[in-house]
């Protein structure tokens, strides 16, 4: 029997679970406008995974990269959830990402 897939599946559940936490906290402290950087980091990690020779490390990095890409598309909806009172709303000014005006002109993706 090959336990690689089963173990990777279980690890994926934990990584996705971690995604719920960082999306909530990340949006609270930094705001949703950082989404292109989170998405870019996710894609970069997937590219790095291509150069790792250990299957485990490569697979886990790929999963983590994909969870960052997915999470980046959740940040906007999380901001709305906070605004309508389902999550704690942070009224303090949030750090603006580089190229913020350009980012504001792009519609944040949601899947």
């Amino acid at each position: 029997m090959n336990f690689f897939g089963l173990a990777l599946g279980i690890a994926t559940l934990f990584i996705i679970g971690l995604g719920f936490i960082w999306v909530i906290r990340g949006e609270y402290h930094f705001g949703y406008l950082w989404w292109p950087y989170v998405m870019g980091l996710g894609f970069a990690l997937i590219v790095v995974s291509l150069f790792l020779t250990t299957a485990w490390l490569s697979a886990l990095l790929g999963v983590f990269g994909a969870s960052l890409v997915w999470g980046s598309t959740e940040l906007k909806e999380q901001a709305v959830r906070a605004e309508i009172g389902w999550y704690r709303f942070n009224s303090r000014p949030k750090p603006q990402p580089p190229l913020v005006e350009l980012i504001k002109r792009i519609k944040a993706p949601h899947l």
Partner: peptide
């Protein structure tokens, strides 16, 4: 190139 990370990501 090791494609397992890309497959796992997809």
């Amino acid at each position: 190139l090791n494609g397992i990370g890309l497959v796992a990501a997809l």
